[in-house]
Nucleic acid binder design. Structure first.
Lengths: 229, 229
DNA sequence: GTGCGCAAGACTGTATACAACTTTGTGTTC
DNA sequence: GAACACAAAGTTGTATACAGTCTTGCGCAC
């Protein structure tokens, strides 16, 4: 346990981290207005710090800021959703391949522990935590590939994916996709680079196809489009 | 001409843009200390705005900020340099492929105009501007591919590449690589997706091999490593 | 009753003020 | 003369204050 975020002083990184965590775990739904005074009071810091945190999140596209109109938890459009997964499909499969070629027993053990935690969270019914761990798994793979720059991109894309899932997930595919993670771990452990790449590619395709990205959807249509028919 | 950045009021986006431009054009060398009061006075804004701008740039890795020790123009390490070009090699070739498949005559005309400007800047001896335009070319291709998310990543990577070039470029390859851009444009215009992908891959490889990324280099070694032998 | 205009409230954008930290220069002691 | 301690200058971290903008609710005219 113990997120790197939890035990620090009131700096903006921490506030940003706490907010990001809440967004990632679907405790702050897309569209929620984030009032600076309010957030500041919750965390016991001034608006200065909150503002800095919100700007960081806006830079990661987890929050949108409009001049004089405040900050809201982002509502990725369908187009943006497609773009996010397009970017992931360019970055992650080949990164998984590199990871398979470089992974050490220590890496594999840590990944295994990570997967165990995922299962635990799922069985405990903590779907928010499960979702977040499931995303972190992808970042971990980039770390194993020893590519911090790519890992940072993937971390951002994973966070945005969490918002996309909140908006466009269709429940029918309730079976959590942790099987895919198990298979990936095995491919990494065995050093099967090509297989790891293919598995990751397939995993991402599965993810996209579990979303409803046909235009008619219900969620982010900002009031103007929502009230037509 | 007329950068989108130039004519605006004193918001932090503008300050960040102006600073980024200066970094991109090698007018602010890596390692330069950016004192908040000083920058604020130059742009006629308060430290609040400057701070916000610096944080944005830090998020893009153009600037490093250490607690209580201020902001400096970043000095990418050799490792980071490799990572940046690794990320580019994952994103750009396949994005060039998409662009070739989608490009319209309007796109091609705009790209051609862009390249003409590049040549102009080179012949005018304005190497800073030439460098920046040359980077923007890569972003434009992602825009033609209609992938704003990927374009944003590439924009960041291109900006960081500018710092990397400032640190590790070996002058001997003085011939500016605008031939590569010409060839790419032709591939896009002809809709030759596979060729565009290959050309981009080769172009990036050429770029990397024009750098001196052997560990012994002179530049970013922060004093501690610099004073060993 | 409907529509317009205006005023109050709420929130954001920016500047300024103060506290805390880091660095640098000076003086004292051994 | 060298090393340490301390003081002063400079810079950042955070809070607060004020100005500007958007929203909303009320009242007045038609």
């Amino acid at each position: 346990m113990s997120d790197a975020v939890s035990a620090m002083d009131g700096t903006s990184i921490t506030v940003a981290g706490r907010l990001a965590l809440a967004i990632h775990e679907h405790r702050l739904p897309p569209g929620t207005k984030l009032i600076e005074d309010e957030v500041g009071e919750i965390f016991g810091v001034s608006r200065t710090v909150v503002r800095s945190a919100l700007q960081q999140l806006a830079h990661d596209r987890l929050v949108t800021m409009q001049k004089n109109r405040g900050a809201h938890v982002a509502q990725p459009t369908i187009r943006e959703a497609r773009e996010v997964f397009e970017a992931r499909s360019l970055l992650e499969p080949r990164t998984a391949r590199s990871a398979a070629a470089r992974s050490t027993p220590t890496d594999i053990a840590r990944l295994q522990a990570h997967i165990d935690e995922e299962h635990l969270a799922i069985h405990a019914g903590d779907s928010g935590r499960a979702l977040r761990l499931s995303g972190l798994f992808h970042v971990e793979i980039a770390r194993i590939a020893d590519q911090d720059t790519i890992a940072a991109f993937i971390a951002q894309l994973v966070a945005r994916s969490s918002l996309i899932i909140a908006l466009y997930w269709q429940k029918r595919t309730a079976l959590c996709e942790s099987h895919a993670h198990d298979a990936l771990l095995r491919a990494l452990a065995d050093g099967k680079a090509g297989l790891a790449e293919d598995l990751m590619k397939g995993h991402l395709l599965d993810l996209v196809s579990s979303l409803d990205l046909r235009g008619a959807a219900a969620a982010p249509t900002s009031l103007k489009d929502a009230l037509r028919p």
